[in-house]
């Protein structure tokens, strides 16, 4: 380690190393307790990691989420209610549908057609 230094410097470095290593044994109890706690947390974290060897990797989770989101969007676009069959058969009927006062008449149209065919259109029901 000290190959490039003179004997004098090597002795100084050895003295420094011993002093620094001795200082490790002089830590106060509160500091040691905090360090022990940190070590235990780290060991727990390592244990959790080891237990999760067969877990789904994060990149795979992200990919699955993106795929699911894309599928939902596609489904929503495909099943757009605007593209479903309209409740009217021709554009002319829009006016009837949108004109709220005539809705009852429109719904009973079959009845009125039968009434006309039966020749009773002029009589009151």
């Amino acid at each position: 380690m000290n190959g490039n230094f003179s004997d004098h410097e090597a002795r100084f470095l050895e003295k420094a190393r011993l002093a620094l290593r001795a200082s490790e044994d002089r830590l106060d109890a509160a500091t040691l307790a905090r360090l022990r706690d940190a070590r235990e947390r780290a060991v727990d974290a390592a244990g959790e990691r080891a237990a999760g060897v067969f877990r789904i990797p994060n990149w795979m989770r992200a990919g699955a989420f993106a795929t699911a989101a894309a599928a939902v969007i596609l489904l929503a676009v495909w099943a757009d209610p605007a593209k479903q069959d309209l409740p009217v058969r021709s554009p002319d009927e829009f006016e009837i549908v949108l004109y709220a006062d005539n809705m009852d008449l429109y719904e009973d149209m079959d009845f009125y057609e039968w009434l006309v065919e039966a020749g009773n259109g002029g009589s009151t029901a």
Partner: peptide, 22 residues
Amino acid sequence: SREDALDIVQDTMLHFARLYAG
């Protein structure tokens, strides 16, 4: 600072355990 040093060591140990324990 003792507190900052403890935080740094704790963060280092957790990071090490999560990423490099294997």
